[in-house]
Design a protein around this nucleic acid. Structure first.
Length: 803
DNA sequence: GACCTGCTGCGGCGTG
């Protein structure tokens, strides 16, 4: 604020004025513009304007998705309050808070409390929690866009509904970065339309995107995703900056880049560090602190540093490989540039040639500010039944009284009365199959109809398992001499023998033994393998897909002035010469005959996930025309159906298999939906409390988690097919795994496109990366190298024959 | 000439 008491940006004034007028709402602004501060300030100003509303006890609850954000924020808030001379106390309450502190808070709440969604639920699980919220004025939800499309977002919705039920005066304020569906985000957060407002900053952060090029186009590989060839171009960028964040897409990629940088410039030793989710929390914290203190020159990270560096600005950001989405790219870019008026600079390092088209697509999407939607999660019954037990534990509730409260949330607005009754049946009787098992009868109706948890043990187990995050299957990695390094996948370690060396957290470790879910290691040096983790796949967003197709279509036009496209010209000309470059209203299919057999390539540019389903569907549809089976491969741009038998497919057949008729029926016939649902059910079983993940003193390991949830799944399939949680598993498969909506849209687009069907006897720049990917899945790396060499030789031979 | 893959996040035993 300046001396007149006005804030730097008009949206900040707008926010506190609306706040003081009794509105709930949502503030939208880029990182670094003080949107967080604006709500904090609104509460303080409101206090001075309406002191009679502010009685003793908790006044403001601040919800953040990250514990690390809470700590910095609490400090900043307390400092500001002390400066004003107010006697308010700001405290954090989450998993990091020690027991004594929690006890003190339970007795005597601070004025402002910073929590996670989980710890807010834990507060609601306490008896007589109403006393905490009696004088509460406002609940602020920070980084709402991060929570919106997740089950943790549903937790927030439910907690807010319960708080509003107890104290209707509470104002709800969300704080969010820009996303495509802001109005919907507001509606989800504040379903009640009266006195609801959206405050959007007019200011935008300027973003400059700089592609990094090799000296010549030939150096960039056609396929691949490591990008190691460009390390010599990256070193000077780091050297010319004070502090640099280097974002990679996967944990193993970050480990490899850390090594690459050290090899390319050994003086980086001690000046650069690594940060990802499988590295020990203490080590990560050290890295974060030393990045802001200036001790570290660069940190290689995954999206573990997407959030949480608000107070630790850096001057340069480098993105290795495609970010797969516009919002993520902008968020990462926003990590650089100290002041809101400074331009955020982000260097884009392509890992293969075609990724330069993604760079040009990103540039246009960022210029037009076309940012992805975040779809709100709806009808997560696993989260609901967990929450109902939480309420029963926190003093109890009357089902008839609470039905409209839950129904009023966005997530459960479509819930029927029968579904609600089923949820009550589930928490009291365990559903149809739980009748004879007392541990599923968690909640007991009292004479007056109130539902409560009676048993102490059930309450304790429930509190220990509150939350919507189900842990991955990981083993701890520890030094024999003591000291924790990080986490590693069980299957990766199973391939290792005593004495083998691997890399974690940038250190070379020698495998000593495996004992009780812990891998013991010795410090070592020399050549070592980099582990891989089975994490989630970053799907290519449909926004980026759209611009990617557009840029590719324009790539050879004389108007294409972008440097990225000009640079790629030789490669694109090659694609055009031997096959075709699809225009925006075209859909390219290539049939390529090689010594191995027959390859059919399709290029929807819809991302791996969608392609996986499409490949299965098309293989199924072709096999209905005549008996043939295929192996499949895919990347973000397209997919391959391969057979050693000739693929007889006319242009008319092609139209038929690409038709949108009976689309979802055929998808269901072509995928193993039961198996997919079984995998989804694992999380649902844990969240709904059918399977207990954490027992006092121990964590249930993944194998037994998988098997017990698998057994329950089979039992329900046989004896209780109407079970709501079982049905939810199938719905999640369709919404997330199969991305039904996007899938249907893709087919609608294809069906109105002109199909271009090309025959070739050599791999094209578009098909080559998919082929390499398919080989990698089936072959060891030495075999792969030989095969790739053969493929090159074949392509070259054909080339010389033609010329 | 072309290779080395899959993200993130939370919580909890115990007392007065």
């Amino acid at each position: 604020m300046n001396e007149k008491g006005m804030s730097a940006f008009s949206f900040q004034n707008e926010a506190w004025q609306r706040f003081s007028n009794g509105y709930s709402g949502m503030v939208v602004a880029p990182t670094g513009f003080g949107k967080t501060y604006s709500i904090f300030l609104a509460v303080i100003i409101d206090f001075f304007n309406h002191p009679q509303n502010y009685k003793s006890g908790l006044k403001l609850i601040w919800v953040t998705p990250l514990r690390s954000l809470a700590k910095d924020l609490a400090r900043a808030m307390q400092e500001a309050i002390d400066e004003i001379g107010l006697d308010w106390v700001v405290e954090v309450r989450n998993g990091d808070t020690d027991f004594k502190q929690k006890m003190r808070q339970t007795k005597n709440m601070p004025d402002i409390l910073l929590v996670t969604p989980e710890s807010l639920h834990l507060l609601l699980a306490q008896k007589e929690h109403q006393r905490f919220f009696k004088n509460l004025q406002c609940v602020a939800i920070d980084e709402w866009h991060e929570l919106l499309s997740t089950k943790r977002g549903v937790m927030v919705e439910l907690a807010l509904a319960a708080l509003k039920f107890e104290n209707s005066k509470i104002k709800i304020w969300g704080i969010t970065a820009t996303i495509g569906n802001l109005d919907q985000a507001l509606e989800v957060l504040i379903p009640d339309a009266t006195k609801r407002t959206k405050v959007v900053a007019k200011e935008q952060k300027k973003i400059e995107i700089l592609s990094v090029y090799p000296p010549e186009v030939e150096i960039l590989p056609w396929a691949g995703h490591l990008g190691g060839k460009l390390v010599q171009e990256v070193v000077p960028i780091i050297l010319n900056s004070k502090s640099t964040l280097i974002f990679t897409n996967t944990r193993s990629q970050s480990e490899m880049w850390y090594q690459l940088l050290l090899e390319a410039y050994p003086d980086f030793a001690g000046q650069i560090a690594l940060h990802h989710s499988s590295i020990d929390a203490n080590l990560r914290q050290w890295v974060e602190e030393n990045l802001s203190s200036g001790l570290l020159k660069a940190v290689v990270s995954t999206s573990s540093l997407d959030l949480g560096v608000d107070f630790k600005p850096v001057d340069t950001v480098i993105q290795i490989g495609s970010s797969k989405g516009v919002a993520r790219f902008m968020q990462r870019a926003g990590r650089s540039g100290h002041s809101p008026f400074e331009t955020s600079k982000i260097y884009f390092v392509p890992t293969h040639s075609l990724e330069l088209i993604e760079a040009s697509a990103l540039k246009e999407a960022v210029r037009l500010r076309i940012i992805e939607h975040r779809e709100p999660f709806v009808l997560a019954f696993d989260v609901l039944v967990q929450f109902l037990v939480t309420l029963a534990l926190g003093g109890g509730f009357y089902p008839d009284q609470f039905f409209p409260v839950i129904k009023n949330t966005y997530a459960f607005s479509e819930m029927t009365k029968d579904e609600w009754k089923w949820c009550i049946y589930f928490i009291t009787q365990g559903g149809k199959t739980g009748k004879n098992y007392e541990e599923f009868h968690k909640v007991v109706p009292q004479v007056d109809g109130k539902l409560i948890v009676e048993k102490r043990k059930i309450g304790m187990l429930h509190r220990m398992n509150i939350g919507a995050i189900v842990s991955d299957s990981m083993l701890r990695v520890k030094f024999l001499s003591g000291g924790y390094v990080g986490m590693i996948e069980e299957y990766f370690i199973s391939k290792l023998h005593k004495g083998d060396k691997f890399i974690l957290a940038g250190r070379v470790l020698e495998y000593a033994m495996l004992k009780e879910m812990t891998v013991y290691v010795k410090s070592s040096s020399g050549k070592a393998i980099t582990p891989s983790w089975l994490g989630g796949r970053l799907p290519l967003s449909s926004n980026l897909s759209f611009f990617l197709r557009k840029k590719l279509a324009e790539s050879l036009s004389p108007n294409a002035r972008e440097k990225e496209l000009r640079f790629l010209h030789p490669l694109l000309a090659n694609q055009n010469k031997f096959s075709h470059i699809p225009k925006e209203d075209e859909f390219l299919v290539e049939q390529i005959k090689t010594r191995e057999g027959y390859h059919l390539f399709f290029y929807p540019f819809e991302g791996r996930l969608v392609h996986e389903v499409m490949a299965g569907l098309l293989a199924y549809r072709i096999s209905k025309l005549y008996p043939i089976s295929f192996s499949m491969a895919m990347n973000d741009y397209g997919f391959e159906l391969f057979s050693d038998r000739e693929i007889k497919l006319s242009e008319k057949d092609l139209h038929q298999i690409l038709s949108k008729e009976n689309l979802m029926q055929d998808v269901i016939s072509s995928v193993n939906a039961t198996e997919m649902a079984r995998r989804k059910f694992r999380d649902i079983a844990v969240i709904s409390g059918m399977v207990v993940q954490t027992m006092p003193g121990r964590q249930v390991n993944n194998k037994s988690l998988q098997s017990s949830s698998g057994i329950i799944f089979s039992v329900l399939e046989d004896y209780d097919p109407e079970n709501l949680l079982l049905r939810q598993a199938y719905t999640e498969v369709f919404n997330q795994q199969l991305e039904e909506a996007r899938f249907v849209r893709a087919f609608e687009r294809i069906s109105t496109s002109k199909i271009v069907y090309i025959f070739s006897d050599r791999f094209t720049p578009l098909s080559f990366p998919i082929k390499v990917d398919s080989l990698r899945q089936s072959l060891s790396s030495e075999d792969l190298a030989t095969r790739i060499r053969k493929m090159q030789e074949n392509n070259l031979k054909k080339k010389s024959r033609k010329e």
